[in-house]
Design a protein around this nucleic acid. Structure first.
Lengths: 145, 145
DNA sequence: CGTCGATGCTTGAGAACTTCAAGCAATTGC
DNA sequence: GCAATTGCTTGAAGTTCTCAAGCATCGACG
């Protein structure tokens, strides 16, 4: 009765897609309540970790660099982010959250009730385990050398 | 040394967003290689579970019903899905994968090498655990009554 | 130092996505 | 049957997205 249920990779990927759709839907609704599109919300969410060059944002969000120009334009027009010239490379523009941008993304994260409620169904130890498994599966370096 | 690392909910949500971005990026690239947009790919992926009404698709993909009309239009024009009138409700149109659509979504799923490689870093038992935790956190019924 | 190639960002064009308001057809409830 | 609701589609307006092209800057090499 221990671990021999036999979930194959296809079933796990299916569960992943369902889970991520739930998370993504929750996030999209929360972002919309602050009058932001999903892409704008995702951009703010990435910037929570700190300033990032346009190129880096595009890479994380898996889109063309030219696409980021428009998204950041609109966020900047609303005063949620700001473009700052890189001190080391004058081609680069670092995008930074403003205080208002920080407030908005925190509000959005706070409104993700469905996700929060789901995670609350797990014990402390189970949350640790989930964090660890996701980290190892998705955040690991492919190869060092 | 066991489970007392202390990952709080915010950190876990952060890890979820990172994992989601990785999965989503992998999926987007795979879909693009078959000349499909992310939305079109996601639609096919949902239909893998079986036919679904427009309304249901919109609900799962967290978008307006009118949005699905265009997406399904384009998929239908390519012969990847087909609209069928519901036998029980003449307002409803069920969307069904064609054989070609089934082939394409299988190809896309097969091309998600990064995700597959990440999951392969986990043991059989760990994959069981991950599946179980995701299912309980994201697929559980909020309330029965 | 000067030039060549690569890199980072922006612009413009064209298509797809997205939402909202409105409309039509069919269903449900009374 | 009639009214309100539900399911899908259309049209308008804005956003997202990609591709091709362009400009500025950097790095390398002679």
């Amino acid at each position: 009765m221990t671990g021999t249920r036999g979930v194959d990779t296809a079933q796990l990927m299916e569960q992943l897609s369902v889970s991520l759709a739930a998370y993504y839907g929750d996030f999209t609704v929360a972002a919309a309540s602050e009058n932001l599109t999903a892409s704008q919300g995702k951009t703010l969410n990435v910037l929570r970790r700190g300033p990032a060059a346009m190129r880096v944002l595009a890479s994380i969000l898996t889109c063309d660099a030219s696409n980021m120009t428009g998204i950041v334009d609109r966020l900047e027009k609303r005063g949620l982010v700001q473009r700052e010239p890189s001190p080391t490379d004058r081609r680069v523009k670092n995008v930074v959250l403003t205080a208002e941008g920080e407030r908005v993304i925190d509000v959005i994260r706070g409104k993700m009730h469905t996700t929060r409620a789901g995670l609350d169904r797990l014990s402390d130890q189970e949350r640790d385990t989930l964090h660890d498994l996701l980290e190892r599966a998705f955040t690991a370096q492919p190869a060092a050398a």
